[in-house]
Every structure is written in structure tokens, then in C-alpha cells.
Nucleic acid binder design. Structure first.
Lengths: 174, 174
DNA sequence: CGGTTTATTGAAGCCTCTCAATATGAGTGG
DNA sequence: CCACTCATATTGAGAGGCTTCAATAAACCG
């Protein structure tokens, strides 16, 4: 959050993701975490993760894998914020969430639950809630999405992916 | 790079940084790397790094450390691109580079060599080369910086940091 | 010194923001 | 079941930041 109250959401986590790696491994956090829905989460004791090499290769490998994926996602977000239009930014976010949620069984072929406010979408994509609203309207009018009662339907995924120049390869980290 | 030719530079490396971790560890790259100056670089053989846990704790710890720092920097860039103004984005970048270069002995108290084109600053900060030019002019007129012959002088670091809301803590990863 | 790259400046236009008003919806208490 | 209230969504009008296009100036380089 900046002094003037503007907020940027730097990441969005789906079930299965680890969070707070930086905070735990570095001993301090430069951002907070909040939940969008009721959540079930597991805690990894600090001692176990603070020196991951003591714990056998599985944990360290999982850590590395998660960090690499987070970084790929962050890079893609930088590209979005720097170069894509508002319409493309939203389309890209929707495509990314489709892939990530589908990977953990929380999306089917045509959509997923998206328990977000428009204002939160705005903070994710670096735009105003007003402009998010207008952009969503534009997406609806192009029959790209439907969003009702917290359920987002991607009506034309190929068109969305083309519009956003969404290339899912960056999500496939071993 | 997007289809229309717009380019986003997602990271900038200073001497001592590792690069291409994702490419090596995942076996593919979603972006390229280019040098700004003649460079000396070391190569770590793929076999040594592909399974970092086989190589004793030092390498793995260095890897983790670098990844965490990269991520902190990426998050900060997301914040910049999403929420800061053009002036703040440039100021923040200049402050960050001051810290990072000073940490490796390549900057003194009042500035450093910055072998970049304005167009490259534009691709870093998500703006147009034209607007970079105008924004630099504004910074000069406020006596914040001087930039001559590849040497960038930060004339008023406190003012720059205040303007950009630059908090160097995110760079201090153990 | 000529030629090419880079920087600078102007003018016009568009995307996005800001401010503000209205509408819709969800939850609550009567 | 309905009125009330608060949060969220929607829409309009105007302003501003940044972009685009284009032209000129400056710097670099063989």
C-alpha cells in the first residue's frame, strides 16, 4: 500500500500454493496476506523450513519449485502491468486463474468460482474499480465472459487467450 | 515481447547476480537475456545446479537467497508498475539501482554509471521513450538527478526516496 | 565529415482516472 | 414478508497522464 492509499496486490494464491516463503526464510515480510474465502491451511514449523537442507531433498525441491513458479508468475504480471491494456490484463488474469485452478481441480472447462470484488480485481491489475467495471462490461459485450454470483464463466477461452497473448507454458514448472 | 512489438524488461542484473535460474532448473526460458556492457560471467554447469541438493548446502543456500531477492524485487516492480506514477517509477528504479550497485562497490554516495538508453528505461518502467524523456527532464528541473555521458548522479537521494516511497528493506535478503 | 543512432520537443488524441450520482443487491430487524 | 441500511456495482461527465505521430536537434562512430 502506498501513502495515498493505493494498493497493489502482488500475488494471488490458490489451494496448494505455499505462502510467505520470503517472510519465513528472511525473517520479515514486506507485504501482508489476507484470505478471500474461509481457508484451510497447514503450517510448516519455522525450524523445519528455516534450514531446508537439513530436511532431506523433498522439502527443498518443493521449495525451489514453488519459488520458481512464483517468479514466473511475477514476471508475467510485470509484463501485464507494463505492456498490456486493461482488457488484456483482465483477460490474462482470468486465463491464468483458469489454468491454475484447473490444475488443482477447482475449475472445470468453462470457468470457476471467483470470490473477488471488482475493487480487488482493480488492485490486482493496477486499475481503478470504475475502469474494471467498464472493462468487464466490454468483455461481457464481446461474449468473452459471464460473471454471476461469484461464478466466472470463460465463454471463449481461445479468444481470451489470443486477446491476452496468454501462453500457459510459464505455469508449467516441474 | 508482445505481438505488437512492445517489450517489457522484467529484471535488471548487476554484477554478482545469478541469472537464468528458471531456465536452468526448469529446462526452458520464457525470456531472453542481453548484456548492456561487456561482461565477465561465470558458468555453473547444468549438472551441478540441476540437483542443487547433491552439492552441499552452500550452493543451495545461495540459490534460495538469490531467488528470494529476485522475488522481492519483482514484487516491488509490480507495485511500481501498478500504482506509481511515471516520475515515481523512474525515481524508484534509480534508488534501487543505487542500493544494489553500492552493495557490490559499483556506486559511490552520489551516483553510478548507467549504460542505458532512454528507450530501455522505457521498457523497464512500462512507459514510452518519449515520456521517459519528458519525465527525466522533470527530474532534472527539480534538481533530483543529473545524467551525463552514462553517469547518473542522484543529487538528492532523500527527496528521490520520498518521492518514490522507496524502502530499501526489501533488498536486504540474508 | 557524413551518416546513423539517440535525444528532444510539439501537437493531437486516447486510455484511464477522478468525482459524483444512481442503481442493484445482500443482509437485518421489525 | 417488507422496509431499511450498507456495501457493491453501474453509469456519466470532465480532466489528466501518457501515447502516438512527426519533426528537429544532438550525439556518436567509422
Amino acid at each position: 500500500t502506498l501513502r495515498n492509499g493505493q494498493r497493489q496486490i502482488t500475488a494471488i494464491l490458490v489451494p496448494g500454493d505455499m505462502c510467505d516463503l520470503e517472510a519465513v526464510l528472511c525473517g520479515w515480510a514486506d507485504c501482508g496476506i489476507m484470505t478471500l474465502t474461509p481457508c484451510i491451511f497447514g503450517e510448516i514449523p519455522l525450524e523445519q523450513i528455516a534450514d531446508p537442507l537439513q530436511q532431506g531433498p523433498e522439502l527443498a525441491r518443493a521449495l525451489l519449485s514453488q519459488l520458481l513458479r512464483d517468479q514466473a508468475i511475477a514476471s508475467e504480471r510485470v509484463l501485464s502491468l507494463g505492456q498490456r491494456t486493461a482488457l488484456q490484463r483482465l483477460a490474462h488474469l482470468f486465463c491464468e486463474l483458469q489454468e491454475r485452478l484447473q490444475a488443482v481441480g477447482l475449475a472445470d472447462e468453462d470457468g470457476y468460482d471467483l470470490p473477488l470484488l471488482q475493487a480487488e480485481l482493480a488492485d490486482l491489475t493496477g486499475m481503478t474499480n470504475v475502469h474494471v467495471n467498464r472493462t468487464l462490461k466490454e468483455m461481457r459485450s464481446q461474449n468473452l465472459i459471464r460473471w454471476q454470483k461469484g461464478r466466472l464463466s470463460l465463454l471463449d477461452r481461445p479468444a481470451l487467450a489470443r486477446l491476452a497473448e496468454f501462453e500457459p507454458a510459464y505455469l508449467r514448472v516441474p
